[in-house]
Write a protein that binds this DNA or RNA. Structure first.
Lengths: 330, 330
DNA sequence: TTGTATGCGTTATCAT
DNA sequence: ATGATAACGCATACAA
């Protein structure tokens, strides 16, 4: 690879001036500028990014933390982020934290070491207090997380609105005995607070009470969905609809339904969450809450790029709209 | 961040010796070594990777080219690669080429610029001749590609064996009118040559001829699968089984089958390829060819890491075994 | 407008 | 065994 010194030799012009040309600085005579440009072209010179980074002048790499790549929610997010980044010639280093606090720290350290110039966190295991110190070393953007840190932009959906919309849809379809499934806990605090609130409000709006037997916590996978369906078939007092909070769980329920002879939606209506491609594969096809993943990823990338450029953000909280998609399962 | 100079100040020991300690060089007295170590700990010093890279002493970043993240085949590959890399403290910069030759070049340039220290290509759009020059700048490993370059290790499955096994399975189940679907062309050369050969050989082994009407080329997506199924329903002379070459295509066929009232496998047996999670979601569940994606990714990562360390590979071609998974669709 | 000299944080060379 | 110093490739303060 040709270096700046090679260009100096070739053009007979000083290093400083060559550097000025490279960085489009003013105060360079047209004549010299052209000579330099010519030499650069002849040598097919490209500035060495490592050297630039050493000088602290380079912002071209963003770190991306996801939970797991194979989770379609995250892979669609990664897709959108990478595409937007590539448009701007930004590279993406990705990392699967699997919610491991220690690993998350190790990856965040890349920010300290200037291996990456900013971070997009789509999942975060550590607490606000643990994350905050890293802000000193570079910008961070949250994407799809509940965490709030002043000064840290966050892109997400309104979980409360999503749950409210979903449950209200079930109620409008005439179901009254609504079961509820969550990936977290059915608590008033923490990550799932807002979604739980949406569920409560939708039920209250129809003066319906919540049956605690029909609340399932910590459900994520297709396998979990099968188990939930099994449990429901074993109940004396059965719900007639379920808000699953996850397409995977909902899909698992459709599989188990076939095995147990449960008819969806006649015996039990099932509502997914995310609008993943698998919604079209199950039988029946899943009604679900569509998340604007594409837009979320794209926006998160745009925000971090703006911060790279030193631009101020006019807004810190971006709440993107969800949409109910009715198919066959409700 | 503390630098080596801070350690020098703190310990009162020269830069050279401090560096020796950092890099575990011999010829350092126990006494000084301990002093340095103490200073390092007190300052929570970490060597600056960028500076090390400048010196040309750092191998910690691998570039990973995939077609698209959202394709489960690739996301499972990425998962395996990232996990193995993380074990060894190697970072992964990923990039979606979408088979764009120009973009592929731009990403390969990271190798030239020493932004990455090696590359894993899981898809490659350019020709052997175009890729070869990059070898000068760092190691490359192919994973799942047909391309052959002497000196470039490749991890893959035997496409011929896979197709042969799949088609033979259909024949053994008693089907005789076998349709064939490929993501590429039905040509004697190029990427899909081996898979096509496997199909031919399996048919020849039973003295069966191939019906060109039943050969579908350039089929990839769920949508493609629907189209294929539609076409088959419109045929006078229908096949009784199909080797799809893709779980997505096979899944699309199950959806269309429901719409057209085609029974799988009674009217038409459908065999997928890859063994993606969606095989369990369709109705009926898909029989398929299981690809050892996990092992492929893991091995590819191991190979590049060995090359980083300057180790010699005892082998350049790694052909991993496939496996037939029989479910409900055949 | 242009060029010289310096520093970014390392590691390696060469003395001592 | 230890330390002073050069070098990696670049951008900039300062001088001219």
């Amino acid at each position: 690879m040709a270096t700046i010194s090679d260009v100096v030799k070739r053009s007979g012009i000083s290093k400083a001036t060559v550097s000025r040309v490279i960085n489009n600085h003013p105060h360079v005579s047209k004549e010299k500028r052209e000579k330099v440009l010519a030499a650069m072209k002849e040598l097919s010179y490209t500035p060495n990014p490592t050297a630039r980074r050493m000088r602290g002048q380079l912002n071209t790499t963003v770190g991306l933390v996801v939970h797991r790549v194979v989770n379609p929610y995250f892979s669609y997010l990664m897709d959108a982020i990478e595409r937007k980044a590539a448009e701007h010639n930004i590279r993406v280093i990705f990392f699967q934290s699997k919610e491991d606090k220690q690993k998350e720290f190790e990856f965040l350290d890349l920010l300290k070491q200037k291996q990456v110039d900013g971070m997009i966190l789509t999942t975060v295991a550590n607490s606000v207090e643990d994350i905050r110190p890293y802000l000193e070393y570079g910008p961070i953007v949250f994407c799809n997380e509940y965490l709030r840190i002043d000064d840290v932009p966050i892109v997400r959906i309104s979980e409360e609105d999503a749950a409210f919309t979903g449950v209200t849809h079930l109620l409008e379809e005439g179901y009254r005995n609504i079961a509820y499934c969550t990936g977290g806990l059915f608590a008033d605090e923490g990550k799932d607070r807002d979604r739980n609130t949406g569920f409560r409000k939708a039920m209250e709006a129809k003066q319906l009470s919540i049956n605690p037997e029909w609340v399932f916590i910590d459900q994520h996978s297709i396998e979990d969905g099968r188990t939930v369906m099994k449990k429901i078939t074993e109940m004396d007092n059965k719900p007639d609809a379920i808000f699953t909070g996850s397409d995977e769980v909902a899909a698992g329920m459709t599989i188990a339904a076939r095995e147990y002879g449960v008819k969806i939606p006649e015996d039990l209506a099932v509502l997914g969450f995310d609008d993943q491609p698998l919604c079209l594969l199950t039988s029946p096809q899943l009604s679900t809450i569509h998340q604007p993943i594409e837009e979320m990823g794209s926006l998160a990338a745009e925000l971090i790029i703006k911060l790279f450029k030193g631009e101020k953000l006019e807004q810190l909280e971006y709440e993107l709209p969800i949409k109910l998609v009715k198919r066959e399962s409700t």
